[in-house]
Design a protein around this nucleic acid. Structure first.
Lengths: 154, 154
DNA sequence: TATTGTTATACTCTATAACTATA
DNA sequence: TATAGTTATAGAGTATAACAATA
């Protein structure tokens, strides 16, 4: 087996850990977990309310995890949840004014941390890396070619 | 704030999630969590027993998490733990024959998944990406330059 | 009958602190 | 007094299944 250091998941984990160490203190200042912040940022990035299923995709969280996080953020007055008019099974989620205000307060510090990363690693280089990560995701999104041994198994 | 899609932590998370989806089934087949497998792989990658502190660094796990994982793997007969002769505070960890055998059984499937990733994304390209991730980690390992506003705070 | 979202349940990991033993 | 590791504790997320409401 290839070396542990050459493991792609491990390399991605370590890189992410290094990056998150710059952002985690900002979230802690506002009593937000990493996942809660992901939800708030995803909501801040869209203009219109989006449903829970779309949030699942954008935040890379499981449905049950997201459900509980939404309850939490709702209780804190940071988000609104309304039933969609055109399909009453769907829940539309959006930031409240309070939620937007919170994101706005964290944003400049987040931007500063990002700037530090660009300075340390290189702005263009970081941009290229993001492109490669996106390409990797696309390449892996295509399901693996089934091995003959399991093909046709019921 | 920059777009959610251009967030480095998010891009690393999604890429990792895409990669892990190829490996996770292999671990599930042997009732191993992702973290337990990280420990076994880290141990398989070294020739001599290593202490817990070194394992913490190599696996990117917290001490208490690792401690409990080691208890679990010990009970399953996959690892040995012995007190270091030169410093009795240290615990040296190594794979048992059973542990090595388990890693050996998983390895070929892991290698196959890796090969699929290389095929989908490109072998050289993947190699370059690993280099960039390592460089990013190094760049971020240097602590951020302190901002003037917090400098000198007791 | 299928889909959307929530709830139930069991398990694991995270994170911080406190503790034990050794240096 | 400092260090290595474990144990304690609280909290959150993961993962699967089951469920209610709607389509």
């Amino acid at each position: 087996m290839r070396g542990f250091d050459q493991s792609l998941p491990m390399a991605l984990l370590k890189a992410r850990e290094a990056a998150m160490s710059r952002f985690r203190p900002l979230m802690a200042d506002h009593d937000l977990t990493e996942q809660q912040w992901r939800v708030l940022r995803a909501l801040a990035a869209v203009d219109d309310p989006i449903d829970v299923g779309e949030l699942v995709d954008r935040t890379v969280l499981l449905g049950p995890s997201l459900s509980r996080i939404l309850v939490n953020l709702d209780h804190r007055g940071l988000i609104d949840r309304t039933v969609a008019a055109h399909d009453q099974r769907r829940t539309l989620v959006s930031l409240t004014a309070l939620g937007e205000s919170l994101v706005s307060r964290v944003a400049p510090h987040s931007e500063e941390a990002y700037h530090q990363i660009e300075t340390a690693y290189g702005t263009d280089r970081l941009h290229r890396l993001l492109g490669e990560l996106s390409a990797l995701e696309t390449a892996l999104a295509t399901p693996p070619s089934p091995t003959r041994s399991t093909e046709g198994t019921p």
